[in-house]
Design a protein around this nucleic acid. Structure first.
Lengths: 148, 148
DNA sequence: CGATAATGGTTTGTACACTAATTATCGTAC
DNA sequence: GTACGATAATTAGTGTACAAACCATTATCG
């Protein structure tokens, strides 16, 4: 009975905490990403492309767990600033092949300074970060399982 | 030296995971909140008001760590559906006293069904949730500390 | 072969979320 | 008592984020 009360209270704190932690950490990236003309979601797209390009919208959508409807305008903005190229696949005109421009490749050097700056600002050690990551992975898996 | 590399990779994963976990869990709330005409941020505002009303925009902003510029239109929508009242404080015409309507009070009964449904869907036990909450609190504190 | 279903992206509409600029009010110092 | 800096909220502008509707292309089946 009292465990029920605890569950309710904790859930409230967890959904609060998750939203706030996410916004706070993304806010930490902002001043570092802004000089290179990137927002955080755009940075995540670039990370994916630096690792493996070209990628289709569908593939990016699966990797970043982002709706295609969200990615579409985001990718257009990245093309407008000159970091990526959007071409239809010649084999299948339905799929869009998203690839890097030379400018986009060059940006990787800049971007490599970001993670150490973040870790330094957070001031958390390896173990704490690992524990956080483990917990987050657990929640993601749990919430993914619901989505049918 | 190799610990440095690990840290960098981990940071990347943590920022990914944080964003995805947040979106996923909020997505879990959507089908439960939609029938009562609330979005997740609106639900958080209502939680704050159920706990202690009236509250000013400034106080809500501090509690939820949300920009006043974000809250302003959100509160207008909550007023439009009839859950809250927005009145200027008679002592200080600058501050807005946000309070609950009878309808808003009544909604609390409905809302109490939400947390157990979420916990049940997540399928995580109390201990796992507590560990997640502990890690999140740590990150929030770390990121907050940076903001001067 | 041709209608039809499925797939991959885009568009539209609503709602955050943040920064910066604006407006209205309050407190204080002169 | 009036000018002035500080405070509280709103507005404007850009960029996510998702659902639903839409469109073009490809695959499939009769």
């Amino acid at each position: 009975m009292s465990e029920m009360v605890d569950l309710l209270k904790l859930d409230r704190q967890v959904c609060f905490a998750l939203a706030i932690a996410s916004r706070n950490v993304i806010g930490l990236y902002r001043p570092l990403l802004e000089p290179m003309g990137l927002t955080h979601p755009q940075y995540l797209v670039m990370l994916a492309l630096w690792e493996r390009a070209p990628l289709s919208v569908k593939e990016l959508s699966k990797l970043l767990r982002l709706d295609p409807g969200t990615l579409s305008p985001l990718l257009k903005r990245l093309e407008a600033v000159g970091y990526i190229r959007r071409r239809r696949d010649s084999q299948d005109q339905r799929v869009l092949a998203v690839s890097l421009t030379p400018e986009g490749h060059r940006l990787r050097g800049e971007a490599e300074k970001v993670p150490p700056a973040i870790v330094e600002r957070l001031g958390m050690n390896l173990e704490e970060l690992q524990e956080l990551h483990r917990s987050l992975t657990q929640v993601i898996a749990a919430a993914d399982g619901v989505h049918h």
